[in-house]
Design a protein around this nucleic acid. Structure first.
Lengths: 251, 251
DNA sequence: GCATTTTGTGCGATATACGAACAAAAGTCA
DNA sequence: TGACTTTTGTTCGTATATCGCACAAAATGC
């Protein structure tokens, strides 16, 4: 790609949008400038543009994103057929298991939820479509990493912030790589309270008819309800069944 | 705002992102140009920029958005505290009613789902956070429109594509305005299969402590299970209770 | 194989980013 | 309170990047 085929004003604007998050729902020009590292004048122009287009509100002091911004993310969700195809299978799976079931894809070091059928809330965080979790300590993340060539998985782990969310969290890259081999061999990933105390989950890959992974599928359950050791026994058959059914549908 | 405070390259790029939808998950340069009305060279630069940043994939022929795009929409969801505050109330409401419960905000002529607690699927379409429905024929949309000054509601209706989704759909602007008055008076909106055959729903406004509407809240039920006439009797008390509880929490 | 459509590229005209300078607020402290 | 400091927002001139057009090249359809 040539230098001139890159619209830096666009790229800068996207950076500005991403500057907003749960800890910073409202930003002044100076704050946004600090977060993005862009010049105050540049950030101001981007924010005023967002505001002019209705993607942001401006009260003269702070900027805040409006729901119109959701159109951008939704452009992906509605454009990719995967969530729509998977959802009914997820509903049935969740219903039969009596637990929450989800599907996700990998984006960098994180998994992104693309569909979910939830039962009673068990996690402290609220997971919906678009939610992200670090791949290294989530069951679906392990499944995705295991599906990659080992050097790519290692590279992603190297870029990840490997922190111990609980005393059970595996954070050593070599341990994790060994665990990924296990996942690859057994065809599923089991997480025992590595993300959050009290939460276990089990995941399998969803492959298309050419054997390529297109998503990961999981069931999560409270550890108080189902011991980690029982997870595979109880839910693996259901997951495998759903996996097989979807394999025939995914192209 | 001065002319020079607007970054047109950014605005054009956002238009290009929105060109993708369920009917057009993959776009060539020429297609994107046709949809957006932008010059091919401009669209090409925007798409190559998206691709360079990892927001899109390019196979040399077609561009497709990647899940990274979801970060943009999620910047709003995680930045606004509303969904997080509402979710547990929604879960409880859905649980007690035994039906799906949702919350939404208004964006132009559409309502946007910001939180949802779903029971068994009843609708043909898959609703999740970020999903949109036309305001004029959705219970939460009626609640939002009823909360606006009448001329604004009329203006939104004028911009809406008022089509009859079912034989029950109200499409006459004057009928709709009359219905909005009724909604305002009785404090709730009832939809009897106007969006989809077999689906009834009832909605109330969520107001903050200053009495300003910040979201709409609804319960949807299959018509086969609950007749429209029973909706208010069965679910209004629950909705009112949740509404009152949230009023104290929303600032 | 020719017509039609689509994509890539060079160029002049125009729009935008940068950095600095200035203006306006917001803190800070006696 | 009022003077001083710091932070923030805005403007400006200029160097540079981007736009849209026109044309060339490639792909596609018939």
């Amino acid at each position: 790609m040539r230098e001139t085929d890159f619209v830096s004003g666009f790229a800068r604007g996207l950076t500005v949008i991403e500057a907003f998050d749960e800890t910073r729902p409202k930003l002044s020009i100076a704050e946004a400038s600090k977060i993005t590292g862009l010049d105050r004048a540049t950030v101001r122009r981007s924010l005023l543009t967002l505001s002019e287009l209705g993607y942001a509100d401006y009260d003269g002091k702070f900027f805040a994103l409006t729901p119109k911004i959701l159109r951008l993310g939704h452009a992906y969700l509605s454009a990719t057929p995967l969530p729509t195809i998977i959802q009914p299978y997820l509903d049935q799976l969740s219903d039969r298991a009596g637990q929450s079931a989800s599907a996700s894809v990998l984006d960098g070091t994180e998994i992104v939820y693309i569909a979910r059928a939830s039962q009673k809330r068990v996690m402290s965080i609220n997971l919906t479509t678009g939610s992200r979790l670090p791949a290294y300590c989530a069951s679906m993340g392990r499944v995705w990493l295991a599906a990659l060539p080992e050097h790519e998985a290692r590279e992603i782990l190297a870029r990840s912030n490997l922190k111990a969310n609980t005393p059970h969290t595996k954070t050593d890259p070599d341990d994790l790589i060994a665990e990924l081999r296990r996942v690859r061999d057994q065809g599923y990933a089991l997480i025992d309270q590595e993300l959050e105390l009290g939460l276990c989950s089990i995941a399998v890959p969803l492959e298309n008819d050419r054997g390529r992974i297109v998503a990961a599928l999981n069931i999560g359950a409270p550890a108080a309800h189902v011991a980690a050791a029982e997870m595979a026994e109880r839910y693996l058959p259901l997951l495998k069944e759903t996996q097989a059914a979807l394999r025939l549908v995914l192209r």
